[in-house]
Amino acid sequence: MKKQIVVVTSGYERFVHWLMAISCLLLCYTGLGMMYKELNFFGAIFGGLKGLKTVHDICAVFFAVGLLLAIQMWWKEAGVFVFPEDWEWIKAGGDYLWHVDHVPETGKYNPGQKMFFLTVALCGLLMICTGFFMWFPHYLPANLMDWVYVLHVLGFVVIFAFFFVHLYLGTIGNPGSVSAMFSGKMELPVLRMLHPKWVKEMEHEGKLMIVEDKK
């Protein structure tokens, strides 16, 4: 079967994604290393726990920048739900949870992706805010500050879990999608599966860039 490859992301988009992803990953890694005494050894590669914290602090800045850029970039496409299509999609479980013959068509990002994005965006913002106050604990009253730590970990619980969801869906869960964030290209059928409406729109507008046919 011949495969059509489509350009789906720009270099900028990929840069922002990885900026966020890598920093987030490092934040998770370093955060874990700090949270569990048993995992303190994570710090070894950064020259100890103090290094771990330093990396966390630095990544925090990158993450914050990445997240803000991502929000700015993706908000329109992934930040707002469009009804009724999105609702239909959700009802159908997006073809993920059970098989549906016809998946309701959604925009560039389906509601699942939107939910993921919103979660990352909101939790990310939460992490940034709470993390900031953790740097300067005296800016807030002590009893408020106590809960800042809780929120930071709460955000982590969600982000960490979603990270695996994202990882699964971005790789083996959706074979063929991962290339979008490496080469920026995707096989058209996969793209159509994931973003049918968007493909149509692009086709309509003649923007669909097919770069290669593969046998």
Partner: peptide
């Protein structure tokens, strides 16, 4: 609560994914 939950949740997600993968399999184009 939250500290153990962070690993539990992540573990739960990974478990769910495994099951999903086995039962539903990867999401392939129709």
């Amino acid at each position: 609560l939250l500290k153990p939950l962070s690993l539990l949740a992540a573990g739960g997600v990974i478990g769910a994914e495994l099951i999903h993968y086995m039962i539903r399999g990867p999401h392939k184009p129709h």
